[in-house]
Amino acid sequence: MLYVLLIYEKPDDFERRDSPVESEAYAGAWRAYHRALLDAGIFAGGKPLDAPETATTVRLRESKRDIQDGPYANTKEQLGGFTLLELPSLDAALEWAARCPAASYGVVEVRPIAVEMEPRVTVGNSN
């Protein structure tokens, strides 16, 4: 089963990434976590996202483009990244979510990938 960990972080967590004092501890924890996922053979993809201020939203309403600065959700915690894991059960996904550095300072949302939707999304030719 594929599970995605959606990482939500607060504004000061995003700031820590570039802070000369705190960035090493922040990045170090993430590096180590990523390494553990690779070693366990469960990492199926994922990336950190740039700060929410860099986001732009797009809506198409009555054939008109509505383009806005900033992220979609106007909440304190913002999506900071995602990690895709191949695991046998939700229990296992929760265990890895608890080890995620963001679990102790932000929020980690665990969601299974919608299995029934997958076959419809085929990419490339089948030659």
Binding site: A29, R31, Y33, A36, R99, A103
Partner: peptide
């Protein structure tokens, strides 16, 4: 690094 990556408790990390 491996121990840090597997830690759940921030104080242990």
């Amino acid at each position: 690094d491996r121990a840090i990556g597997l830690s759940e408790d921030p104080s242990v990390r």
